[in-house]
C-alpha cells in the first residue's frame, strides 16, 4: 500500500506525544485488567461479608470494603468491564450508523443528501438525555437497550463529520482524475475515498468513548443504568456518595479510577487528532 507513509508518519508523531503515550499505557493496562478481571481480582465482586462491613484499605482488602463487606478493588475491576464495554459497544453502534449515514449522504449528494441531513438537524434538536431516561423507565434497565440508546444519540455528529469529509475528498483532483479514467464507483470509493476518511473517524470515535462512558455513569448515578449485582463505575460512585461521610474511600477510589480513565481517553484522542492531522491544532 502506498499510503503506508501517511500512517507511519502519524504513528511517529503519536509516539512522540508524551501525554498521549502515557494515556495509551494506562488504557492498555486498564483494558487488560478488565479482560483478565477473574484472575486479578482478589475476591468475588458479589460476595457479601456482612459481619465485616465497611473497612478502610488494609493488606487483605487494599482498597477497603463496602458497607456489605464486598472487596472494593474487585468491584472496581469488574466495574471496568461494564463501563468500558458500554463505552466501546455504544461507540461502535454510533460508528456504524453515523459512518454509513454520512457516506451515503456525502457520496450521493443532491436530494438524498438534503433529506438525510435535514433528518440529522431535526434529531439534533431533540433532548436525548431525557429520551434515554424515558426509555430506561419504560423498558426497564436493560444493558443492551442502554448500548443501543446511547449509540443512537452519539451517531449524529459522526454522520456530519463523515459527510463533510466525503464531500471534500470527492471534490479533490485525484478523485476526479480517477473518475475520468473510468474507475468504477465502488472501487473509487473503497480505494480512493474511504482510506482518507479513516483518520477523522478514528479520532472522533476515540473522543466519543469518554462521552458515552460519562452518559452511562450519569444514568447509573441516577439509579437508571446498570443494575446490581452488576456494577459499573457510575453505580459504585452512587454508593460511594451515599456513604461518603463515614467511608470516604468508597467514593474516592471509584471516582479517581473513573476520572483518570476519562482523562487518558481524552488525551489519547487529542494526541491522535494532532498526529493524523497536524494542520488542525487542538483548540
Amino acid at each position: 500500500m502506498q499510503n503506508n507513509s501517511l500512517w507511519s508518519d502519524a504513528l511517529r508523531r503519536l509516539l512522540a506525544n508524551r501525554a498521549a503515550m502515557i494515556s495509551a499505557v494506562i488504557l492498555t493496562l486498564l483494558i487488560l485488567s478488565a479482560i483478565f478481571a477473574p484472575f486479578i481480582a482478589t475476591h468475588s465482586y458479589a460476595y457479601q461479608n456482612l459481619s465485616l462491613g465497611a473497612t478502610a484499605p488494609s493488606a487483605e482488602h487494599f482498597l477497603g470494603t463496602d458497607t456489605l463487606g464486598r472487596d472494593l478493588f474487585s468491584r472496581i475491576l469488574y466495574g471496568a468491564r461494564v463501563s468500558l464495554m458500554v463505552g466501546f459497544v455504544a461507540t461502535f453502534v454510533a460508528l456504524i450508523i453515523g459512518v454509513t449515514w454520512g457516506i451515503i449522504a456525502g457520496y450521493y449528494g443532491g436530494r438524498i443528501d438534503s433529506i438525510m441531513m435535514r433528518i440529522v438537524d431535526i434529531l439534533y434538536g431533540l433532548p436525548f438525555v431525557i429520551f434515554i431516561i424515558l426509555l430506561m423507565v419504560i423498558f426497564g434497565r436493560n444493558i443492551w437497550l442502554l448500548f443501543a440508546a446511547i449509540g443512537a444519540v452519539e451517531w449524529l455528529t459522526m454522520a456530519r463529520i463523515v459527510r463533510a469529509q466525503v464531500i471534500t475528498i470527492k471534490g479533490l483532483e485525484y478523485v476526479q482524475a480517477a473518475q475520468a479514467l473510468g474507475v468504477p464507483n465502488n472501487r473509487l470509493f473503497i480505494r480512493h475515498i474511504f482510506p482518507n476518511i479513516l483518520g477523522p473517524i478514528a479520532v472522533y470515535a476515540t473522543l466519543t468513548i469518554p462521552q458515552v462512558m460519562l452518559l452511562e455513569a450519569f444514568l447509573s448515578f441516577l439509579g437508571l443504568g446498570v443494575q446490581p449485582p452488576m456494577s459499573s463505575w457510575g453505580t459504585l460512585i452512587r454508593y460511594g456518595v451515599e456513604s461518603m461521610e463515614e467511608y470516604s474511600w468508597l467514593l474516592i477510589f471509584p471516582g479517581l479510577t473513573f476520572t483518570i480513565t476519562l482523562f487518558a481517553l481524552n488525551f489519547f484522542g487529542d494526541g491522535l487528532r494532532d498526529a493524523l492531522d497536524p494542520k488542525i491544532s487542538s483548540d
Binding site: L214, F221, V241
Partner: peptide, 15 residues
C-alpha cells in the same frame, strides 16, 4: 473540569 463529571465533583465539594 471537563473530565470530572458533575456527580463526582458535587459530592467531593460537599465532602
Amino acid at each position: 473540569g471537563i473530565c470530572m463529571p458533575t456527580f463526582l465533583l458535587g459530592p467531593i465539594l460537599v465532602l
